[in-house]
Simulated scan of single mutants.
Amino acid sequence: MRPMLATPADPDAGLPADGDRWAYEVKWDGWRVLADVNDGAVRLWSRSEREITAAFPELEAIGRAHPDVLLDGEIVIMARGVPSFTALADRIHLTDRRRASALAARNPATLIAFDALRMYGVDLTERPWQERREALERLPASGEHWQLSPVYDDVDVLLEATREQGLEGVVAKRRTSAYRPGVRSSDWRKLAHRRVQSVLIGGWRPEINDRNQFGALLIGVWSAPGVLRFAGRMGSGLTGAGAQADLRRLLTPLQLDSSPFAETVPRADAKGATWVRPQVVVDVRHLGRTENGRLRQPVFRGVRSDLEPEDVRYE
């Protein structure tokens, strides 16, 4: 099962301000998962339906707390009091449980649960959000490495608080809405304080003084199925050794003889490029988009192995 997704709100219109019809939650900067708890064990599934249980051994305690529940939530790792997507980077590709356990001991992850899709064998997806939330709250309010996402009824207060605290944003959920697996629904709406876009890597250029290092990535977003639109050249944020190693491991097998972009990439961007199949998804922070779809000052945040290439679209 794929999780239900929120529709980006119009920044000018904002989120609906009606606490009787809508509930408001923090938009967490983490890794979206479904946690399937059954018979004393928990299995964690990413948004792309890939099992990632081995990467988060500290969350096994959830399985011991509840006999049968399917939770929707976000895995976060805290840094200086706020969730850090960057801090998750060391876990994203882990399958070695010993390595994962060592990282968990130093920097543990938390599952922030915000929906219950099954409980004690009963499918709750067709129940309204309000009823699912009440069922979720009947579980213990907190536990070892997991907690419930708080709910608020005043969107303006929450927007201001999340902005002041450096959190990512706010999600509004219609209280009467059913859960639609895999659907991006207007019954859930999100408003981010910081602009983040998932993109595909279509090519890369080496560092000027070290051709073994990535100096810039050529990135794109699907404008239609099979049509990759060039979204710009990104060099900021690539200096970490971990990021360089991950990108080289992922991109080396994907090399192409020609550009995968639908339009001609400007010569200034394409000079010296190595082209690759657009299979690797990364998140970037940016300052907006130009009229031709280029991202302004994109900064690399990390690889999104929880997303499939076809999931990439303009936010």
Rank of each mutant, 00 (worst) to 15 (best):
E160Y: 08
R163L: 15
Q165N: 15
L167W: 05
G169Y: 02
G169F: 03
G169L: 05
V170S: 00
V171A: 09
R175N: 07
S177T: 15
R180P: 01
V183D: 09
V183P: 03
S185Q: 09
S185K: 06
D187S: 06
W188L: 08
R189G: 09
R189Y: 05
K190P: 05
A192R: 11
A192L: 09
R195P: 06
S198P: 07
V199Y: 03
G202H: 08
W204G: 05
P206V: 06
E207I: 03
E207H: 12
N209I: 10
D210H: 01
R211I: 14
G215M: 04
A216R: 02
A216F: 01
L217A: 11
I219C: 08
G220F: 06
V221T: 12
S223Y: 11
G226V: 00
G226E: 07
A231N: 06
G232S: 03
R233K: 15
M234C: 13
G235M: 00
S236M: 08
S236P: 08
G242P: 04
A245P: 08
D246F: 02
D246M: 09
R248F: 11
R249L: 10
R249P: 03
T252R: 14
T252A: 14
P253H: 02
Q255G: 04
S258G: 12
P260M: 08
P260A: 05
P260C: 12
F261H: 02
F261V: 11
F261Q: 00
E263Q: 12
V265P: 03
V265C: 06
